[in-house]
Structure formats: C-alpha cells, structure tokens
Write a protein that binds this DNA or RNA. Structure first.
Lengths: 125, 125
DNA sequence: TATATAATTGTAATGGTTACATCTTGGTAA
DNA sequence: TTACCAAGATGTAACCATTACAATTATATA
C-alpha cells in the first residue's frame, strides 16, 4: 500500500523529492506511514530500476522516477532541481578505455531563471 | 602548517581522498592534527576554488585539487575514483534556456579495467 | 480458517559533518 | 623583549540523514 503510493507519487512529480518530502507529503494520506518504510521502499525501487538515486551537493538524497539518461540542474539559490536533456551518448570522452560504464550522471549548478530575476531570494548555497 | 600540508597532499594525488583518508595520511607527519582542521581547511580550499567537493554516490565526500572541468568515474567494485576527460563545453543540452550554469559535474559508474578482469574482488556497491 | 510470507513500523545505533568554545601560534607595535 | 591581537588549530559535543534490527501488521495461499 505505502509502496504503491510512494511509487505513484514519485512517477507523478518532477520535484526530485527527498525522503522527508515524500514522507510529509504522504503522511496525511497514510497516517501510519513511517520513514523507515519510505527509505526501504525507495531502496527497492532503485534496485528494480524504477527510480534513480541522486546525490546532489546536499546532505539529503533525492529520488527521480525518470530513469532515462538526462541531466539535473540544481539552483544554488532556491535549491530546486530541474531536469534537462543532454546528449550523453555522443559525448566525447578520453581516458575511459577499458572501463565498463554502467551509469551516467550529469549535474549542473547555478541559478534558475526565476532566481536570476528575483533579488529577494535567500541564498541557500 | 596543517593547511599547507593538506593542500600539498591534495594537489599531489589523483586519489580524490575523503576527509578520513587525508586525516590518517597526514597524522604521522602532524601528530597533533585534528579532523576538525581537515574539514575546516577543505571548506576554505573549496571556497577559494583551490579544490572541488565531490559527492559520488557514497556517504563520504571526496576532494579534488583538479579544479578544471573533467569527469569522474567511480568503480562500483573497488570504490576507486578515476578522472577522465570530457568535452562538456560542446555537449548539447535542451531545457536550460534562461539558466545560468556555474558548475558542471559529470559522474560515471561501472567497473574499472582492473576489476573487470579480477574476479576475486568484493563488490562494494 | 490457519499459516507462511511479505510489508510495515518503531526504536536505537551508526557515522559523517558541523557548531562552538578553547587553546596555540605567529606577527606586529611599543 | 614584552604585550597584544588575530589567525590557525584543536577537542568535545551536538546534529541529522541513514541503517540495523526486532517486532508487529497485512496479504495471499492452501
């Protein structure tokens, strides 16, 4: 039950939520939900390749149900994480001869359009 | 003193060491060294753009004195982190119109040449 | 219904990191 | 030299995301 709700929520958002976000979001719906369940479920989803685990430069992990290869942009001011497309297949690399690449991660940082024009936001690093 | 030794060690290695690695490596040389100093110094180095903070899919941060844009490959079996060259400037992206990109991070995962031919290694995720 | 297995929960421990107060070092001026 | 100040370094304790573990609840199958 919790398992299905978590997957549903994850596939229905592009927010790249943290465990805390998922937990507090689903708590009203599932009052018995525990954080341990959220952790455990996400671990299973990642193993089953139904979700991707993202380590941005934060102390909290994020999760993404979009399993296809794409880039992530994290706004240093508002902290929001955006998806973007990147042609990683045709990226030229040197020094990976003999390596077996299983997963590619592309992370950009900077300021998102909203924060670039908004001077009022607090800088969150 | 500690500050200089830490920077020297970092610039002289391609191991992408963790705080623990730096600490235990320099302890014989600086018996009074504390981990707090290592943390603090690395924070300063990153702010001064003399080092880069790397968040691989681990629970420990890694540090790299190579500040230029390049990719990082982490072997899922032995845990070692390798550098590789990648032409990030000519990478085609879509969906970043209006974004100000300040930093680019490219992280690959898989098996390194040594681990691919070595069946004895323990899998470390 | 009974029973086995999977799913969920709660508590406590783990471990990297940070806050904070203290102590030491190095340089500068009188 | 001595006094003094600021930067550098240290140690302890707190913080917090995550994990381990044991116990409880739900689900399915015979």
């Amino acid at each position: 039950m919790a398992r299905i709700k978590i997957l549903e929520y994850l596939t229905g958002t592009t927010d790249h939520p943290t465990v805390e976000m998922i937990y507090s979001r689903l708590l009203p719906e599932i009052p018995t939900l525990s954080k341990t369940t959220v952790y455990k479920t996400l671990e299973l989803l990642v193993e089953a390749n139904l979700a991707r685990l993202l380590h941005m430069d934060e102390n909290e992990a994020r999760f993404d149900a979009n399993v296809s290869d794409h880039g992530h942009f994290r706004c240093s001011r508002c902290g929001k994480v955006y998806d973007f497309e990147a042609d990683l297949d045709s990226l030229e690399t040197k020094g990976l001869e003999g390596f077996a690449v299983a997963e590619k991660n592309l992370i950009f940082k900077g300021s998102c359009p909203r924060c670039r024009t908004d001077r009022s936001g607090r800088i969150r690093g």
